[in-house]
Structures are given as C-alpha cells and as structure tokens.
Amino acid sequence: MSAPLLSARGLKLAFGGVKAADGIDLDVMPGEFLAIIGPNGAGKTTFINMTTGYLKPQGGRIEFAGEPILGLSPRAIVRRGIGRSFQLPQLFTEHTVIENAALALAAHAGIWSPFVPLLRPGYRAAAERLLDRFGIAHLTETRADALNEGARKLADIAMAVALEPRLLLMDEPTSGVAATEKMQVVETLVRVLRAEGVTAVFVEHDMEVVARFADRVAVWSQGRIAALGPPEQVLNDPAVLRDVIGIAGHA
C-alpha cells in the first residue's frame, strides 16, 4: 500500500462551544476521489479550511506528501500543490472567463510582467485549451458574472486545475447547479481530474453523485468521522442512512 497523499491526525477546533473538528483522523490516498458527506454544520468546510491554511486547528497535525503543512500560509499551501474550489465560485467577476483562466495560468507560471498583455497569443491559446477541457471554450469572452451556475463552477475548478495541484479540495461542486446540468458538470470534472491524475476530496450532498463518482466516502457528524469506506458499503449503512441521508438526501 502506498503512502497517503494527505494525512490528518487528531484535528481539533471549536468555535465557542461548537466542536467543528473533534479529533479528525483521515488519510487520502494518491489518485482517489474521496467524497465527504454529512449534515450542515458537521464541520465539512472546516476540514477544508484547516487543510488549506485558512483556519488553524487547536490541536492535531496535517501532512501533505509526507511533510507537515500546519502553520503554513494559504498561499504557501497552494504552492505546495493543494488546490481548492468553492461552494460559491470565486471568480474575478468583472473579468472575462478567458482572463480568469489566463490569470490562473500566469499565477502558476509566476509571470508578472507589467507590460506584456495577459492575453498575448501564447497565453490565450493555453487558456483556451484549459477551458476547452472543461467544455466551456465557447464562453471565453463572457464576463464571469454573466455565467450560469454550472459554468461558474467549472470555471472556478478550471482555475484551481491551472495551478496543477496534486490534491484538489472541492466544496460542494454541484450545489446550485440545475438538476439537468448536474451530471454533465460532474462528468466533465471527473474526466479532467482523472486525466490530470489529480487526487480529489469533495463535499457533496447529492448521493447519486457520490455513489457514481466517489472511490470512498467519509461521513462527517458533529466534528467527527462517523463512517468511512466504499460508497456501496457506507451508503447502505443503516446508521448513516438514518443520520445523514435522512437529513441531507435528495432535495
């Protein structure tokens, strides 16, 4: 068995009296797709925030590729290869889609010339290729604030992928996406991530998405991992069905 890519041990964090993380132990293996499910307030986003350096746990440790990352700044963690995407996509709303993508590529390449256009030919082509892989190449000239939710999510994730992360943490990649688009969005996303060899952890409320795309499922409950295993096992566990899916199942 290979070493885990991400390894969290004993993460603890409380806000006032609420325990958002109460001893989280989790290993994420290279190449896997791990879904996190659980009711609202269980601490799912808190886990992502701790892993990406936005929240500092009060106890525990996190290692990425064998090195401790706790205490590093969010920017340093990004540069080590942990990307993230958001429940509410974080796009530069007054920029076009291609500018968003090109900025991500420029950030990754560390190219900050103040006098060469962002969209000079070579850059433009690279940005178009990136968007094409996500199936949104037809939207290059659209302003980001004019996109529908599915395209916004894909653009958001495309920007994270532009940084060539080894691990991508996605917070509810399908929330807000119209039901008719949902499967298509996830399929596109999974195809690109698999092709890139990106390991992914994603928070998801849609059990159909989880069942189809996750290699393993972790069930969050009150700051703890209540169950962990392959979807067919976890999603049929009566306790999970009662506590989690009963609350946060199909909308």
């Binding site: 974080q90 991500a104 962002l118």
Partner: peptide, 27 residues
C-alpha cells in the same frame, strides 16, 4: 500596457475578488 498585463489584470481582480488571488498563490 500595464492595465492589460497580468499584473494589471490581477490589480483589477483586487476590486472584485481579492480572495481568489490568494487562492492562486498570489499576494
């Protein structure tokens, strides 16, 4: 020229979504 460059476009990004710059690993 600056306003069209990566630096200039990132500058404009501060107005709409400063957090994204940080998520891109940019200060």
């Amino acid at each position: 020229a600056y306003l069209r460059s990566p630096m200039g476009r990132a500058l404009a990004g501060i107005k709409t979504r400063e957090t994204r710059l940080e998520f891109l690993g940019v200060s």
